[in-house]
Design a protein around this nucleic acid. Structure first.
Length: 501
RNA sequence: GCCCCCAUCGUCUAGAGGCCUAGGACGCCGCCCUUUCAAGGCGGAGAUCACCGGUUCGAAUCCGGUUGGGGGUACCA
């Protein structure tokens, strides 16, 4: 058996969609597992909606996910790589024209001059008669003279493919035997528009044939269209590839995942801080499983285990909670250096948005890794967690400054005492967590305060938040001077509002 | 409407006739750890395997039907 050739063929009419990414992933996995070739082809014949920007996004996000292709475009608008170049359909138009001419010459296809109005009327009539819509075949038996006279009138025909009466049977690699009667295909279908541009069902088959694809792994939404493709492969005199239809990724309401109801752009997940490792891991488990209880797996580990037999038949709801959990798992697996590296774009974004006033250096970040790595659901949350370290001024909410069990005067007294304790006990010593904690606990004890309440008052005073990394580590990271300054500011705020309202 | 596909905890899934009084994970709840928040550990609730028939000594697993859901049905991709 020749080495498999598989492909992902997205249209640059939108950013890389989660469903396309999953299909790309499964094709990639199949190629890697079987020693086959993974091809990227851009289906850009919808000129009105295709853009170079979307093309760039497709390529960039696929790369980000690590789904390297063996053949195809390397950069938006750039050169293609591989023996079947070009891999953009707009650059392959001659081959479609040639295939269309060939089908026309062999009378496997014919020009159709029906107007949109006629077709619309046909459809309405069928609907009224409770019959499935299908092309009535008005132009299928036109004589050469009749065709010539219409062309003479200046009418340009679309090209229709003749659908023969037959039952098309194929052995789907995930669904098993599927049989569809061509009578249910809606009659002869258009393969080239009257303006001369070819249609999807046609170009996809011409290209898959030309590029010698052996396996078509795609979403279940193409299952019903498969007979059309098989008919076309046969008409083109090409061997029919094997098909594998993957279950759909679903919205929470179990309809096909859509931008309307879910977040579908890979770029958006990336921007939120989802790691490619987590994305790939999560997507691989939507509709496939190892058959074991393993679940945290790298792309390579998945590729080593992948098989079409374990692909699920039913659709899979996209469960963001599970993705977030997986993301946390992968964050915790990162080395400190890698972790810091991945924080960079988010810190830069925080700076840009004014959420922090200064960018920390990797050296400043390094000691913080142990206390933040296990606390981040995504790298994108870094500003939220420790942004207080790099802002010039924290915004204080007086209500938060006073712990629940306390009143304002207790909080004020506690902050004053805490300030003094820090000042005294650290004036000549190094400012370290181990040296800060004991005197603070002693202060709480001698004053009859719960340590937790004291710590919370200090936490809010210096960070502005109630949820932070461990208090003393936060104080150390902040540094003695800023801790004292922020305590002073908090004390002043509380004291200033001391007069009864 | 017609055609096709599908059906195990809320969700992702294990399961390919006896190992299943159905396992794991997410989420949820409780406990532990604990200065907050997380992370982690432990435990719990949660599925009459959609339903009804059949085959079989025996069915979540095989067959038929029903119901439900989804997809397709364009001079979109």
């Amino acid at each position: 058996m020749p080495a498999p050739r598989v492909r992902i063929a997205p249209s640059p009419t939108g950013p890389l969609h989660i469903g396309t990414a999953r299909t790309a992933l499964f094709n990639y996995l199949y190629a890697r597992r079987t020693g086959g070739t993974f091809v990227l082809r851009l289906e850009d014949t919808d000129v009105a909606r295709s853009t170079v920007g979307f093309e760039a996004d497709l390529i960039e996000q696929l790369r980000w996910l690590g789904l390297d292709w063996d053949e195809g475009p390397d950069a938006a608008g750039g050169e293609d790589r591989g023996p079947f170049a070009p891999y953009r359909q707009m650059q392959r138009l001659e081959s479609y024209a040639k295939a269309a001419d060939d089908l026309l010459a062999r009378d496997l296809a014919y020009p159709c001059f029906c107007t949109p109005e006629e077709l619309d009327a046909d459809r309405k009539a069928a609907e009224a008669a409770h019959l499935p819509p299908r092309y009535v075949g008005r132009c299928s038996t036109l004589t050469p003279e009749e065709r010539a006279s219409r062309v003479a009138e200046g009418r340009r025909g679309a090209l229709r493919f003749r659908v023969r009466a037959d039952k098309i049977k194929f052995d789907d690699l995930v669904r098993g035997e599927v049989e569809i009667d061509t009578a249910n295909l809606g009659g002869d279908f258009v393969i080239v528009r009257s303006d001369g541009t070819p249609l999807y069902h046609f170009v996809v088959v011409v290209d898959d044939a030309a590029m010698e694809m052996t396996h078509i792994i795609r979403g279940e939404d193409h299952l019903s269209n498969t007979p059309k493709h098989i008919l076309l492969f046969q008409a083109l005199g090409h061997e029919v590839p094997k098909f594998a239809h993957l279950p759909l990724i679903l919205n929470p309401d179990r309809t096909k995942m859509s931008t309307r109801k879910s977040q579908t752009a890979i770029a958006d997940y990336r921007a939120q801080g989802f790691l490619p490792e987590a994305m790939v891991n999560f997507l691989s488990l939507l509709g496939w499983s190892t058959g074991t209880e393993e679940e945290i797996l790298s792309l390579d580990e998945i590729a080593g285990r992948f098989d079409l037999e374990h692909v699920q038949k039913g659709g899979a709801v996209f469960d963001k909670d599970r993705l977030e959990w997986l993301n946390g798992q992968w964050i915790r697996k990162l080395s400190p250096e890698d972790f810091i590296e991945r924080l960079q774009p988010f810190l830069a974004a925080d700076l840009q948005a004014g959420r922090i006033d200064r960018l920390p250096t990797p050296e400043e970040l390094r000691p913080l890794v142990p206390i933040i790595q296990e606390r981040l659901p995504t790298p994108g949350a870094v500003g939220d967690l420790i942004g207080f370290l790099w802002v010039d001024h924290v915004t204080l909410d007086p209500a938060l400054l006073v712990p629940k069990r306390w009143d304002r005067s207790t909080a004020l007294a506690a902050l004053r005492a805490a300030r003094e304790t820090i000042d005294d006990s650290t004036g000549s010593v190094t400012f370290e967590a181990d040296e800060l904690e004991p005197p603070m606990r002693a202060l709480a004890e001698s004053s009859g305060w719960k340590a937790g309440d004291l710590f919370m008052a200090i936490r809010v005073a210096v960070t502005g938040r109630t949820a932070t990394p461990p208090l003393f580590d936060s104080l150390v990271a902040l540094g003695r001077e800023r801790v004292l300054a922020r305590l002073d500011a908090a004390i002043e705020m509380l004291a200033g509002s001391e007069e009864p309202a």
